[in-house]
């Protein structure tokens, strides 16, 4: 019962945070909403049996990405302080899209017949050790690719964001 309550709390975190992130006009509130939502998600991951992924979610997303977004907000301060006037048409379009999407997906989920396994696999299979082993053996290509992508992203980010070099006098 308590477990159920905890889970629903996490779900509430996810949805309330998401709602805040989606509808807030102030960018800072949106970021906070995102953080709440991510935190709830981490809780759900924990509940789904993966403490490692939950930890990574907290570390990378909340600790890294959210903070990076706060930096971006501060670097482009103008809009973030004076949010533009709400555009009802745009919001309507967005909500319509979301409703259509949610309706379709919910309908599909209701109709789908998933072949569920009886019970979760053994605790050992969920351990960090098993994950690390899989990453370095069976999924090593994926692992290496991911590191390469991150490297490229860093280089790309630097290249894009740097100031243009002063032009040589001709």
């Amino acid at each position: 019962m308590l477990e159920q309550a905890v889970i629903y709390t996490f779900v509430a975190f996810v949805l309330i945070g998401g709602g805040l992130a989606a509808f807030s006009r102030q960018i800072l509130y949106a970021i906070i909403g995102l953080g709440i939502s991510l935190l709830g998600l981490a809780g759900l991951f924990l509940n789904l049996g993966s403490p490692f992924v939950a930890a990574m979610q907290v570390l990378i997303y909340i600790g890294g990405i959210t903070v990076a977004i706060v930096f971006a907000m501060m670097l482009s301060i103008a809009m973030s302080i004076r949010p533009p006037d709400p555009d009802a048409r745009k919001l309507g379009f967005a909500i319509a899209c979301a409703v259509i999407f949610f309706g379709a997906v919910a309908h599909l989920i209701r109709g789908a017949q998933f072949q569920q396994i009886a019970s979760p696999a053994s605790e050992k299979a969920w351990s960090v050790g098993a994950l690390g082993h899989a990453l370095l053996t069976h999924y090593n290509v994926v692992f290496e690719t991911l590191s390469l992508v991150l490297l490229l992203a860093i280089i790309g980010a630097i290249l894009i964001a740097r100031k243009a070099l002063p032009k040589e006098n001709s």
């Binding site: 259509i100 999407f101 599909l108």
Partner: peptide
């Protein structure tokens, strides 16, 4: 929207 329609 298109994705949703196709998925549906």
């Amino acid at each position: 929207i298109l994705l949703a329609v196709v998925a549906l």
